[in-house]
Design a protein around this nucleic acid. Structure first.
Lengths: 110, 110
DNA sequence: CTTTAATATCGCAATATTACGATAATAATT
DNA sequence: AATTATTATCGTAATATTGCGATATTAAAG
């Protein structure tokens, strides 16, 4: 036990959940917001900006990068991270497809 | 360590992350999809539908209920769960506000 | 009042996540 | 080549999550 039983769910459910999951941490939300506001960034800016250790931020960046939401380009001594615009819009579309389903219920729950 | 440092983030970041987080598990995605398709449901249906133990499903329902996404109404011996339509649309709007920010970057990342 | 059915809660084991110091790796600067 | 700056990785401790059996709770049915 303690291990998510992915086998019993559809690929779609697993994929959607893992997208939600990567956004399910305030540090990663903050990183994305900072990236959006700065239009560019390097990791060390984030260490000053957020109050987390460099190792911790590097780890969160790695998770975001693993989903493809952000890309990192080596730029001399530092790394330039930015949001993948195409994937960003695609994720938004997937979330909207999920939320746009009709949830109205008539048979119960007044 | 091991504990998310919520204090260093804004309320907005924490709130948004916790919404994403609750959706970040395939069982909870599956539960919501089932609720949407059935237009109503009771917990025991879910035990047959998904392959998880009754205790596990009850726990996931509790998490969804704690955010307000679903409501449970006692209906005789069973409980009728359904999605809170208003909150559902509100969450979608919050997610869209997050995703609609301009992410285009010109200064780096070709 | 006892039985049955449905759901919730408890307790626990297994696994995952978060955080960070220490250190490695890489590349510019001197 | 040595130094410095930046980022990544390793190792580890603390905490959280997931899953489930066992049991409690609640309400209808007999």
């Amino acid at each position: 036990m303690g291990l998510t039983r992915s086998e019993i769910f559809t690929d779609e459910q697993n994929k959607l959940a893992s997208l939600f999951k990567v956004l399910g941490h305030p540090a990663r939300v903050a990183i994305l917001q900072y990236l959006i506001n700065q239009k560019a960034c390097i990791c060390n800016d984030l260490v000053d900006e957020l109050g987390l250790a460099q190792a911790t931020i590097s780890q969160h960046l790695k998770e975001l990068k693993s989903t493809g939401i952000i890309q990192g380009t080596i730029e001399g001594k530092s790394v330039c991270y930015c949001i993948d615009e195409k994937l960003w819009k695609q994720i938004q579309a997937e979330f909207n497809a999920f939320f746009n389903q009709e949830v109205k219920v008539t048979s119960c729950c007044p």
